Simulated scan of single mutants.
Amino acid sequence: MKIVVLTGSPHRQGTSALLADEFIAGAVSKGHAIVRFDTAFEKVGPCRACYYCDRHDGECIQKDAMRKILPEILSADMIVLVTPLYYFNMTAQLKTVLDRLMPQRAALRKHPMKSAMLVTCGSNTDWNMDAIMAHYKVLQQYLPWEDQGVVLAKNVFARKDIEGTDYPPAAKALGERL
């Protein structure tokens, strides 16, 4: 299975990067092919809502990193969203990439995929993950994606906080179960 992993953190060695690495290790150990994009380090402009794509057969007016990201998503069997929680939702970098799926929304809606989400959060409050989970569920309904699992890592503000917890093994196990 081809899996596209989209990370959203601007920290290459942060908490969510560790979860991404562990998920990938688990999936690769079972023979899955991984394509990873660290969205914080890609040049992707926000959707301009210009609808150029509707008049040009799904082509976006912007010529940026989405030209390499979007074809990988369109040919994937699974998408994995990995992000730290920023103000109760995914990072702007990851959200920008998701917004830019718009030119191919019709194709994506005809291309069911498996999905998973890995989220880290510095807080230990139970409701902190509610908004991001609601967003993920709406994406599953709209595109359509079939959830394969979620890892919600709370109370892990820094890398040292997540190392040695059950969260990295849970991310690896999710990759191994596919």
Rank of each mutant, 00 (worst) to 15 (best):
V82M: 03
A173N: 10
Q141N: 14
P10V: 07
A33Q: 14
K137I: 00
G122V: 02
Q62A: 13
A116H: 05
L139A: 11
R177Y: 09
H111I: 09
A107E: 12
I69C: 10
V5R: 01
Q140R: 09
I24Y: 05
E72R: 10
P169F: 01
T7F: 02
A170S: 09
R67Q: 15
P112H: 09
D64V: 11
P71V: 14
F88Y: 15
L152N: 03
A65L: 07
E22H: 09
M102E: 13
K63N: 15
Y86Q: 10
G45M: 14
L85N: 14
N89G: 14
K2V: 13
M90Q: 06
Y136N: 04
T15Q: 04
R100G: 07
G58V: 08
R55G: 05
Q13N: 12
F41A: 01
P144H: 05
E146K: 15
W145T: 11
D161Q: 02
F23N: 00
D99A: 02
L18F: 05
K2I: 14
V44G: 05
A25K: 13
S9I: 00
A171K: 05
T39Y: 07
C121H: 09
Q93I: 01
K30D: 07
T15C: 08
I61P: 00
Y51Q: 12
K43V: 13
R177A: 15
V35D: 15
A17H: 07
L81E: 01
A170Q: 11
F157H: 10
Y51M: 13
G26Y: 10
Y167M: 05
N89I: 01
A158T: 14
S123L: 11
I73Y: 05
R67G: 12
W145Q: 11
Q13S: 12
F88H: 14
T165I: 01
G149E: 02
P71Y: 11
A173Y: 08
W127H: 10
E72S: 14
D57Y: 12
I79W: 00
M1I: 09
V44I: 08
I34A: 06
Y167I: 04
Y51N: 13
G8I: 03
E59P: 00
R36G: 12
R105N: 13
W127L: 08
K172T: 00
I34D: 13
D147W: 02
